[in-house]
């Protein structure tokens, strides 16, 4: 038995698709379209310069380049350290800032400041602080710990990527912190109070009760942050050593090269970057789910 088709029913059916349509269209057409073109070029399909045959040449040359692996490792290491440190520090700050104490509102406001500050400005401030002639080095000199700038460790343009990580931390700790703070607020103090009357001390309450409750929030934000830092271009370009560079920097350098023949390689690097990111995030989710169980 089919029910009669009325205007009301048709409207009801179309309601959700119409609401979602525009947003989905932007993502599918722009983001998806861009991905597809990029994928095509990485596979050697680039009619503008006369390439119409599909091949894995670009991938072959990228993956066999020893420098590629070094860059991949660097990119991964920076993103991992930035993500883990931001999450841990953010939870710590959120635990303090959820308490009410004299000045807690001011402290929370200060904590929010990095949220609207663009990454480039953050980098700008960090540079002035931690270069070998930066403000911290001057503090060191004033305290008699060092004499000339060269005595200060090279934290910018260094192989470890310390300046890059610091910039990411400055930006992301407040972001994760505010999300954790929001989750803590919605959970409230009640579960901890219950645990307390059942005999759980502060450490047991944190690890057995609070952490499992805020874990989903931490997982979400750490996915956002890892994906962001893994793919960021301008911060490593600005604060990192020229060699080895992170993968986005390498890819973009290749892309902007006047030699259009390097384009497929630039695209291949970016595709590999994206695939690695997705695989890592899937593995992370699986792992986290397993850990929760």
């Amino acid at each position: 038995m089919s029910e009669p088709i009325t205007m009301q029913r048709v409207k009801e059916r179309l309601k959700i698709p119409l609401m979602l349509g525009p947003a989905v269209a932007v993502i599918v057409l722009l983001f998806g379209g861009g991905l597809l073109v990029g994928l095509g070029q990485s596979l050697g399909y680039f009619p503008a310069i006369g390439l119409t045959e599909f091949s894995f040449d670009a991938y072959r040359s990228v993956l066999t380049d020893p420098n590629f692996l070094r860059s991949l490792w660097l990119t991964f290491r920076i993103a991992l350290v930035a993500t883990v440190l931001s999450s841990v520090l953010a939870v710590g700050f959120a635990l303090v800032l959820r308490q009410k104490f004299g000045g807690s509102r001011l402290a929370t406001f200060l904590f929010q400041i990095p949220i609207p500050v663009p990454h480039l400005v953050a980098a700008s401030g960090i540079i002035l602080l931690i270069t070998q002639s930066g403000l911290i080095a001057r503090f060191g000199a004033a305290a008699g710990l060092m004499e000339v700038p060269a005595d200060f460790p090279a934290l910018v343009f260094d192989k470890a990527g310390i300046a890059i990580i610091l910039t990411f931390l400055w930006k992301e700790v407040p972001f994760v912190g505010l999300v954790v703070l929001a989750v803590l607020q919605s959970v409230g103090p009640q579960y901890e109070e219950q645990a307390r009357t059942l005999g759980a001390n502060a450490r047991q309450r944190f690890f057995n009760v609070l952490l499992p409750l805020i874990m989903p929030g931490i997982m979400s934000t750490s996915i956002i942050i890892f994906a962001f830092t893994f793919a960021n271009y301008e911060i490593p370009l600005l604060l990192g050593v020229r060699f080895p560079s992170t993968l986005p920097v390498v890819a973009f350098r290749q892309y902007q090269d006047p030699d259009l023949g390097l384009r497929p390689e630039a695209m291949a690097i970016s595709i590999v970057l994206a695939v690695v990111a997705i695989l890592l995030l899937i593995a992370y989710r699986r792992l986290a789910r397993y850990a929760v169980k």
């Binding site: 009640q190 579960y191 109070e193 219950q194 645990a195 307390r196 009357t197 059942l198 005999g199 759980a200 001390n201 009760v209 499992p212």
Partner: peptide, 15 residues
């Protein structure tokens, strides 16, 4: 946590 006075709340508060 060391008082041995255990509370059952209005909301069950099962973890």
């Amino acid at each position: 946590e060391r008082r041995g006075a255990v509370m059952v709340f209005q909301k069950h508060l099962l973890f």
